[in-house]
Structure formats: C-alpha cells, structure tokens
Design a protein around this nucleic acid. Structure first.
Lengths: 213, 213
DNA sequence: GGTTCAATCAGGGATGTCCCCGATGGCGGC
DNA sequence: GCCGCCATCGGGGACATCCCTGATTGAACC
C-alpha cells in the first residue's frame, strides 16, 4: 500500500476541523489544522501537504487570500475548496485563485475522501450541482462573473488592489508580498488610472461595490 | 458522579456532526445526530435528549421550524442554537422560537461544553458578542440602534466621523461644515483615540460595520 | 468665581499618499 | 530586431494624515 495522502485542514471553526480529523484521520494523514489565513500560509509552506482542504469563508480574505499568497510557489500542493456556499461567484473566485476542486460541506465522508484522492491525482473535482456553471464560466465566451474593468488590470495590480482596498498602507502591502514600496506605488497608480479613480478611498468603495474583499 | 448530559446534534453537515461527536463524546452522551428538520423533530420526541444542539441554517425551515414544531411539549429538553451567523435577526428569531442559548461556531471545545452544561442547568447562554443586542431587543424600549461607543463621541465628532468614513479628505470636510482643517484634524484625533482606532481606514471599516453610512 | 468640558484654531513634525520623471529586464508579437 | 507591455525599482515633490503641544471662547455645574 502506498503512503497516505498528507492533508492540511483550513477552517475557522475548530469544531469542523475536529470533524474532518475524526472522519478522515484513519484514511489520510492529517498533518495539521489551522483556523486563519496567516496560519494557513505559513503552515502550507512549512508542512508541504499534498492536499489543502480549504474553507472559502475565512476572516481576512478567505481561502482566496491564501491561494493568492501562495501563488504557484508550491505546484505539488493541490487545494480543494470546501464551503457551505454554492454561489457561483465564490466558486469562480476560488478556482481562479488556483483551487483544483470545490465541494460543499453537505458532502458525505466517502465523497470527500474520493474528492481528496482525485484532486491529489491531478483531477478537478466539483460537486455535481456546481459542475454546470463552472464549465459555463470557463468554456463559454461569456463568463458569468468576469468584470471587464477588473480584467483590464494585470495580476499584480489586482493583488495590490485587494490589499489596498482592505486598508493596508503601501508599506504593509510591500512587506506582505515582498516588494519595494515604490513598486506598490506604481501598481496603485496604474490601478487608479485604469479605473478612473482619484484616491484610495474611492478604490475601497469601488472594491466594496464589487464585493472583491 | 452524576449521569452525563444526553445531547442530540442537529446539523445538515455530517462533517460538523462528526466534529461535535469527536470533541464532546467523552464528556457528554451524544444520543444521536441528524441532518434534517423532519428527522430532528421525530428524534427529539423519541430520544428526549436533555439538550438539543441545533444548527440555525437548515433546509426546509431551519432550526426555527424544529422549535416551532415542538412548541412547549417537552419542557425538559433545552435547545442551544449553534450557528455560523452572528446576525441579529437570526439570533432573535431562534430565541423567540424557544431556544435557550445561542453560540457561534467559532466557539472552542471548552466553551461549548460549558454552554451545554449551563443550558441544561436552566441558564441562558450567549456568545459575548451577541449578549448585547439580545438584551437590547428584549429588555429595552428603544430598539437595537443605541451604540455605547458612538455615544461617547460629541455631536461634532460624530458629524466629522461620518464624513471622514465616506472618504472625504480633511480639507473637504472642513469646507463642507465650515471649519478650519486644523479643527477637523482635532476632531478626527479625538474620534480615533476614543474608539481605539489607529487610522481613517479602520474608522471606515468601523463605521461600515455599524451601518453608519 | 472656579472648574470642567465642547468647540474652535495654530505651529510643527513624522509618516503616508499620489504624482511626476526616469531606469532595467523579460516576454511575446510582427 | 524592434516595439509594447509587464514587473520591478529609484528620486523628488506636493499634499494628506496623524500626532504633539498649546491656546481661546462659551456654556454648564457647583
């Protein structure tokens, strides 16, 4: 028998994490469980799990923030999003950020185990109900929730935009994504110019309006 | 040692039920766990648990439907609501329907165990953050809107606070209410100090949180 | 009459924001 | 090969934010 899959559980509810451990601990190797975005990013970097079981709704940016923080620095680690929500925008956002699957928390023990194994093997896994509009969003010419304004921004600009809109100073943003303050300034300037905004307050309002936070 | 408290777990997520069982099974007697409104009502009638751990958000009516179906037919069975939501309307609704307590799922093992024991003993239990507006909604003649933090600010400070939180610069605020920029600065400083905030971004978040805009 | 407090304003300084100018290296298109 | 775009960084400057100290007026309270 081959080695067990190493799984990290990220969810802000300790009770839920305990549930996953109790249910799956025999079949996979739960290498850790954490409850916040910051803990998650460092835990993933340290533990290098095979699969991250990732709650979508977390304080301070949610699962998306974790995936963005990691970028593609750890290609061997696959993420499986796990959420109570079946809203299209949640699904799209987290898949765009790099998750390899998305299942809702109504899932059973066997289904979840199967999902983890398939994600680890490289498959994309979706709850049946979600498969429909996920395919819509990616295969069709007209995606469901793409924002023409947002698409005109580069990846880096969107990344900076999210952090600025959350109230971080330039210096804090720079530290968080390892850039110089000057580079952050440049990106913010581009964002403001492209979106026709005049300062960071309007940017916060703009982002709140679009629920990018 | 007295008999263990008999607990029924109602939640539509099997994983969460497993978590509660794994975490509390040693200290209380989990007599059953169910995932739907119908199962819950019959299970409660059959098993007569001491405490029902009740998820608020369920398909087909939620925890409220279960409480209403039972009415006061089983006074010995107390219900403790357990939810991801901390929205006032959810709390009020489930308490009105007869729950004896309400805690959010961010709760720790020890806190939940304590909550179960206190509900069983006849106490009402609320997460600290919720206690405030529950009391407001039931005891006060004035509805929920009073805010102790806001009351500690003077009229002028509240006025400035609202404008700053909307993104106006000091200069714009000064022009709008016919003051010098320096006076606006003074008021903002007072507001930040009194509310224990460190900059205008946190202030915006604070105000948005309270729907002051 | 003295005290306390809200409201108003000023000077000065540290830091943050936003813009201008410029530069380099990489990558893709024609 | 050149051009455009992206990402990265720097200098310098204008202005905004946030803090400090310190001041005056008027109204309320005892």
């Amino acid at each position: 028998m081959s080695a067990r899959i190493r799984v990290l559980v990220v969810d802000d509810h300790a009770m839920f994490r305990a549930g996953v451990k109790a249910e799956l601990g025999d079949e996979v190797d739960i290498v850790g469980d954490v409850g916040s975005v910051d803990e998650a990013t460092s835990a993933i970097r340290e533990l290098r799990p095979d699969v991250v079981l990732l709650d979508v709704h977390l304080p301070h940016g949610g699962g998306v923030a974790i995936l963005e923080a990691l970028g593609d620095s750890l290609p061997a680690t696959k993420s499986l999003a796990l959420s109570v929500s079946d809203a299209a925008e949640d699904v799209i956002a987290v898949i765009r950020a790099g998750a390899r699957g998305y299942v809702t928390k109504t899932i059973t023990h066997d289904e979840l185990l199967d999902a983890i194994r398939r994600v680890h093997a490289g498959d994309a896994v979706f709850s049946p109900r979600l498969a429909g509009f996920v395919l819509d969003a990616f295969a069709s010419t007209k995606p469901v929730t793409t924002d023409p304004d947002l698409d005109r921004l580069t990846q880096r600009e969107q990344e900076v935009l999210r952090l600025i809109a959350r109230g971080y100073t330039y210096k804090e943003v720079a530290a968080r994504i390892h850039l110089s303050v000057k580079t952050v300034e440049t990106h913010v300037s581009s964002v403001l110019r492209k979106l026709q905004l005049s300062n960071r307050h309007e940017l916060t309002a703009w982002a709140t309006d679009r629920r990018l936070l």
